[in-house]
């Protein structure tokens, strides 16, 4: 079985650092790749539509980002989703339990789930153990 491959799309460098550490602690084999905004993530995916090895299993997508936020990313992603040669699970990350955001997220079929920051080691473990899942994941925090 191939190593799990994560994308973290988030402009917060500190959060990137924390996630890198956390995921490494859970499983050092997990590959993680960072993008500081949605546009960069989209650009990368578009360039690697055919290259399944470069594509992630899981995308952790922050909502609040400059230039292109999480929502924009999702609508852009949907436009070329069928061209991607890999099943990708996208989880939306947000720093709040804002009910409006959750309701909005549930409307989007492209999403596999919804995670609230911060994300603990257990959270990552859970995500991995349930992967691939279509169920909505409820963070314990």
């Amino acid at each position: 079985m191939n190593k799990l491959h994560f994308f973290l799309i988030d402009d917060d460098e500190i959060f990137q650092f924390i996630m890198k550490n956390t995921i490494a602690e859970v499983n050092p084999d997990i590959k993680i790749q960072f993008f500081s905004d949605g546009e960069k993530g989209i650009d990368f995916l578009k360039q690697n539509l055919e290259a399944a090895n470069n594509l992630p299993d899981i995308i952790l997508l922050d909502v609040n980002m400059p230039f292109m936020d999480g929502w924009e990313f999702l609508s852009e992603y949907k436009s070329f989703q069928t061209d991607i040669k890999k099943d990708i699970n996208i989880y939306l990350l947000t720093s709040s339990n804002n009910p409006q955001d959750i309701a909005k997220a549930q409307e989007i079929s492209t999403l596999s789930g919804y995670l609230v920051k911060p994300i603990s080691k257990d959270g990552i473990k859970n995500l991995i153990s349930h992967f691939p899942t279509t169920e909505w994941y409820q963070n314990e925090f």
């Binding site: 500190i14 924390i18 909502v63 609040n64 720093s95 709040s96 804002n98 920051k117």
Partner: peptide, 18 residues
């Protein structure tokens, strides 16, 4: 409210994680 929820919560959770 949004600012506090999004912008303030993010760094504070980062602090606690660090």
């Amino acid at each position: 409210n949004n600012i506090v929820a999004h912008n303030l919560r993010a760094p504070t959770t980062s602090v606690s994680a660090l």
